Amino acid sequence: MLKLELRPASSRWMAYFSPLLALLLTVFFGVLLFLILGKNPLTGLQVFLLEPLRSQTAITELLLKTTPLVLCALGLSVCYRANVWNIGAEGQLIAGGLAAGATVLAFDHPGAALSGAAVLVLATIAGVAGGACWASITAWLRDRFHANEILVSLMLTYIAQLLLMYAVNGPLKDPDGMNFPQSKVFSSEFLLPHLFHSRLHIGFVVMLIAAAGMTVFIYRSFAGYRLTVGGLAPLAARYAGFSSRKALWLSLLISGGLAGMAGAFEVTGPIGQVLPSISPGYGFAAIIVAFIGRLNPVGAIFGGMVLSLFYLGGEMAQSRLGLPSAMTGLFQGMLLFMLLACDTLIHYRLRWKQ
């Protein structure tokens, strides 16, 4: 019978080559998918993978979608390094966006005490705090009652979505919005400054700074070292006196805060108001981004660009080729499956054992 056995030694560069191989396999099976759907595969790949890169406007849209993906993935990378399986970045993003939107609306009226940049900074801080507070629920339940953080963080995502629906149908609802479930559109002074005369905003620069900061934290700080050791070797970490409780709280608060910042940037950036749907699933897609990037902050940037390309390509395939909107999720799922398969075959080998 065939049996999986651990390889005696798997080179490190092969582990980093795995995402590229997974992407190539995804493109290959994407060709088969276009053939099954009765579409010209060359046209399909051109629309899905090349059209989003053909102009400056298209590239800025790509970077716009990359920003929330990378911010969420940075926090998730910290969690997964610490062996804390946070699946609720989507809910933390929603909580952060809701907190940031409520903050802007509190000052978006004549005679407010603060205006302009001060409110944007305050809204961003509120978003970070909102996401961190939402993640702290998972940390507390895991710490106090040993609840499974996978289930808790995932279920909290749906609670966050229901809370958002309540807010846009209740306290944050625009009284002049013809009964639509949404807040009023923010004044222009409460929107993030744009870059390159496009929809890309200054949050992209903040994301790059956050990636640099997380690189230093993970690879050059003692706190990051403690988290990594705790994830790779829990017994060694316990012997060294590293607190697993601190690792749990620190990793989840960082992850929730960065996801909340992503939500704040969405609300005060391309959306410009609070809507029933703040995110098309960035928090879930960021899980794939984190693993494509090998839990490395710099790698997360490239992973975020790949997933952003899938988002834009899926939208173009829907409008130009008449394909279903599920194409984006299908390509994301294929990429994750191929990545897991490549990782397995790199670290394990199939042997015939009688």
Rank of each mutant, 00 (worst) to 15 (best):
M1V: 15
K3V: 15
E5R: 11
E5C: 06
A9N: 11
M14Y: 15
A15V: 06
F17P: 00
L23R: 01
L24T: 02
L24Q: 01
L25D: 05
L25S: 03
F29P: 08
G30F: 00
L32K: 02
L32M: 05
I36C: 13
G38K: 06
N40E: 00
N40M: 00
T43W: 07
F48A: 11
L49W: 15
L49T: 12
P52F: 07
R54G: 14
R54M: 12
S55E: 03
T60C: 06
E61R: 09
E61W: 01
L64F: 10
P68A: 09
L69S: 09
L69K: 11
L71E: 10
C72G: 03
G75K: 05
L76E: 01
S77W: 05
S77D: 03
Q92S: 00
I94V: 06
A95I: 01
A95G: 00
A99V: 11
A100N: 07
G101P: 11
V104P: 00
F107L: 03
A112C: 04
A112R: 06
L122S: 13
A126S: 09
A129Q: 02
G130T: 07
G130F: 07
A132R: 04
S136G: 13
D143E: 13
R144M: 12
S153F: 11
L156M: 08
T157I: 03
Q161A: 07
Q161L: 10
Q161F: 08
M165A: 12
Y166I: 12
V168Y: 06
P171R: 10
D174T: 01
D174L: 03
P175A: 05
E189N: 08
L191P: 15
L192K: 02
H194I: 13
H194Q: 14
L195S: 04
H197M: 05
H197F: 10
R199H: 12
G203Q: 05
G203E: 09
A211E: 07
A212V: 12
G213N: 09
M214V: 11
M214I: 12
I218K: 04
Y219G: 00
G224I: 11
G224W: 09
G230T: 07
P234V: 10
L235T: 14
A240L: 11
G241R: 01
F242N: 14
K246N: 14
A247C: 14
S251V: 04
I254P: 15
I254G: 12
G256E: 00
A259E: 01
G260E: 13
M261T: 13
T268Y: 03
P270C: 04
P270N: 05
Q273H: 11
Q273M: 08
I278V: 10
G281Y: 10
Y282L: 06
G283Y: 06
L295D: 02
I301R: 09
G303E: 03
V306T: 09
L307T: 04
L309N: 11
L309F: 10
Y311P: 09
G313K: 07
G314D: 07
R320T: 02
G322Q: 02
P324C: 02
M327A: 02
G333I: 09
M334R: 02
M338Q: 08
C342D: 12
C342G: 08
D343H: 13
I346M: 08
H347G: 00
W352V: 11
W352G: 08
W352I: 10
K353T: 15
K353I: 14
K353W: 12
